[in-house]
């Protein structure tokens, strides 16, 4: 293929993914509010548009029109940079996650992934490790105690859980013998989903994903009774919305990662035996990806409204004394499995 053609196709893919992400994020906020209302026996947003469906747009406009307040003690350049960094990490990570197999559109073979990088998993790990800075910098640059404490807490939390996350991913990589997300999905054909093959790794990864996205029960960086708002206490208007968007985009990425690494990606077990035409198979597979994602997102929100928050020392205990040894155990289990299978 010519360079121009590749560039055009990639640009179109990027546009589609970013638009989809923004729409999903805004409606994820809506669903979060609806599910929390359901969990607490309330009605939830129902005023703007039919059944409150236009609520996300109203929220965004409200945030856009608000005054942007920068504290006097803040370091302005970094204060502005931090939410941009958070959004940058949230949106670029999605580039390597495949939502379906390659398809033929108007005679061109198109992979349903923005970039099929041969070290995609490392790329994601690199970006998540950079994501810590968004929170650290926002906490530091606000010039406020609450923000700084929230930022420091959050960085410590993310670093601690990155370890068990890395070890859980290592188990998946050993099995797939590749760092390409597409190859990892292909290695989980049939019912060989990693969630079934290495259940301990699945659990440690899911817990680490919760901690990395700062969601309850691990949302200590923004624990309201102790830290006001945590690292984004001093943010208002669109900068606050940036953090807000990034948090929900990170939830989407976390669930997409869980699907790709452990739940077979776009795969539907034994679909090829039904003898359906190719386009129908692809359509079902892409739908399956989004259904899995929807279930996981519901699970993440459900957990938030069911569980109380950990204390800080409990969080560190869990990360270092439970999750880390468990993920090592998983690695040994995978090694033994590979030995037996060969």
């Amino acid at each position: 293929m010519e360079i121009l053609q590749i560039a055009v196709i990639t640009l179109v893919k990027i546009l589609i993914v970013v638009t989809l992400m923004l729409l999903t994020v805004s409606y994820l906020v809506y669903f979060e509010r609806k599910i929390s209302a359901w969990a607490q026996n309330r009605v939830g947003p129902n005023r703007v548009g039919p059944a409150g469906l236009l609520q996300p747009f109203a929220d965004v406009f409200k945030l856009l029109l608000k005054e942007d307040i920068v504290p006097f003690a803040a370091t302005k350049s970094i204060h502005t940079l931090a939410p941009m960094l958070a959004l940058f990490v949230a949106f670029t990570t999605y580039a390597v996650i495949p939502i379906g197999p390659s398809v033929e559109i108007f005679g061109y073979k198109v992979d349903l992934v923005v970039a099929d990088v041969n070290m995609g998993i490392l790329y994601i790990l690199a970006l998540t490790s950079v994501g810590v800075y968004a929170i650290t910098f926002s906490g530091w640059s606000s010039g406020s105690k609450y923000s700084l404490l929230g930022g420091v807490r959050s960085s410590a939390q993310m670093i601690s859980y990155e370890i068990s996350m890395g070890f859980s991913i290592a188990g998946v990589l050993l099995f797939a013998e590749s760092l390409r997300p597409v190859a990892i999905v292909n290695a989980q054909s049939g019912l060989m989903w990693n969630a079934f093959v290495q259940p301990i790794g699945f659990i440690t990864f899911v817990v680490a994903a919760f901690a990395e996205t700062n969601r309850l029960p691990f949302d200590l960086p923004e624990a309201e009774p102790e830290l006001v708002g945590g690292y984004h206490t001093e943010y208002s208007s669109m900068k606050f919305a940036g953090f807000f968007l990034a948090e929900y985009a990170n939830m989407i990425i976390a669930s997409a990662m869980i699907i790709t690494l452990y739940l077979g990606g776009w795969q539907v077990p034994y679909i090829e035996k039904l003898g359906l035409p190719d386009y129908a198979v692809v359509l079902i597979q892409v739908t399956a990806f989004f259904v899995k994602m929807g279930v996981l997102l519901f699970f993440i929100i459900w957990v938030r409204w069911s569980l109380p928050r950990f204390r800080y020392d409990q969080l560190m205990d869990l990360g270092w004394k439970v999750m880390f040894p468990l993920s090592l155990l998983n690695l040994i289990w995978v090694a033994i499995l590979i030995m037996i299978m060969n």
């Binding site: 690199a126 490790s129 810590v132 960085s155």
Partner: peptide
């Protein structure tokens, strides 16, 4: 590989410690 490891190890881990 070195490019990605540079980001993970230096930018992602060591600089967090510095900061």
């Amino acid at each position: 590989f070195i490019a990605v490891v540079q980001v993970i190890v230096y930018a992602g881990a060591i600089m967090v410690l510095f900061l």
